[in-house]
Design a protein around this nucleic acid. Sequence first.
RNA 1: GCUCCCAUCGUCUAGAGGCCUAGGACACAGCCCUCUCAAGGCUGGUACGAGGGUUCGAAUCCCUCUGGGAGCGCCA
Length: 416
Amino acid sequence: EAATQVILDGMQWLGLTADEGPFYQTRRMDRYREVLDQFLADGHAYHCYCTKEELAEMRSRQEAAKQKPRYDGTCRHGRQPRPGVDPVVRFKNPVEGTVVVQDVIHGNVVFENTELDDLIIARSDGTPTYNFCVVVDDWDMKITHVIRGDDHLNNTPRQINMLKALGASVPAYAHVPMILGTDGAKLSKRHGAVSVLQYKEEGYLPEALLNYLVRLGWSHGDQEVFSMEEMQRLFDIKDVNKSASAFNPDKLLWLNQQHIMRATPQRLAQYLKPQLAALGVEAADDAKLAAVAKAQAERAKTLKEMAQNSVFFFKDLDGYDEKAAKKNLTAESAPVLAAVRERLAAMQDWSAAAIHGAINEVATAFDLGLGKVAQPIRVAVSGTSVSPPIDVTLEVLGRNSVLERLGAAIEVARAA
RNA sequence: GCUCCCAUCGUCUAGAGGCCUAGGACACAGCCCUCUCAAGGCUGGUACGAGGGUUCGAAUCCCUCUGGGAGCGCCA
């Protein structure tokens, strides 16, 4: 239950919505049983009484002889039921000829039927197996395109044979290349594979993840950044490459930033809010949230990072970064900060432009470069040496907080 | 082992015989811009796995090898 919910939630977050379903194979058992009986009745399948032990022995014999392990067909031509053995059901695969998988990506892939054996389609307890269930599903649901990882290419000829036995039409197949880990090795649970929801938690935008994924094995000229709309309009499964690709977290990060810069502040605010909440910061003011998001957009690779760097906008400072304070909150900067505070306190129009003007005037009055003035202010209001442009930072922070924090910083600077 | 798939910078890719002294992007380095950090701009290095063919000409077509991946379950 929990596992399926993760998949469903992940799809929803990515905006990959379905027209119908989901369908559960566990609820279609009667139908599979029906087709199984049909196969048995018309001779496309048979009961196999070979035991697991016998099969294991056969397998090790074949492996020792450097052969491909496969069922030898002992029960294929009829065998008396054996007491104490619950039979499995095997599909009677054609013994000669070839199966051609007409793949949208790989072209025609030819398999010899002699390479295929009679696969088990129902276990000894009567339950159907995966390769059989999907065939029945594809048939019943009139599937036109089967798009999946190319690790399934080898399963396809068996499925086509079953489809043909059913008299069903064969869908178009597209076997897309796999995504490998950073080191080119297969992605596995303990090696880089994570739930898509983990990217949500880490502050990625769904369109960024999708954009990254869509460019793996596919391209459109030199374009790197695609909006959701562009992806839908431009992507065509026929243009997908055949070769596997390695996952590159750096590029995903870059793309995420690109999409953050392109997103509206309102939408960023919606994602930023829970990220701040995770840091224990309550941000109730949506307008302020959007203003912060706008100011931080081009300096955050993830929403999580943005939240971390934006805490000071919403919460009182609990101290200064030591190095930053030592360098900027000094006896020399104290009068400068005081002058800035005085001017800001007297300002009518609390806007970035007006703030910028005021700071410039102070810099001129003290015959200092802008940096010598801005940096102490930055430390005073943010506690660190990094923030959005100082005028924007002060505007968003609001007059009360700014004056209060400047006051506190002046005390510290004087004492230095 | 057998069968199938794949093969251009470290990575993602462009390239469908001459436009390729191989283009773009991420990352990296340097410079510019600059109130910090970024963003942005400019510059730089690094690739057609190897060997045979075909052709006037091959990254592009063919073959072999090599390398990587997948499948070969009473798993999905």
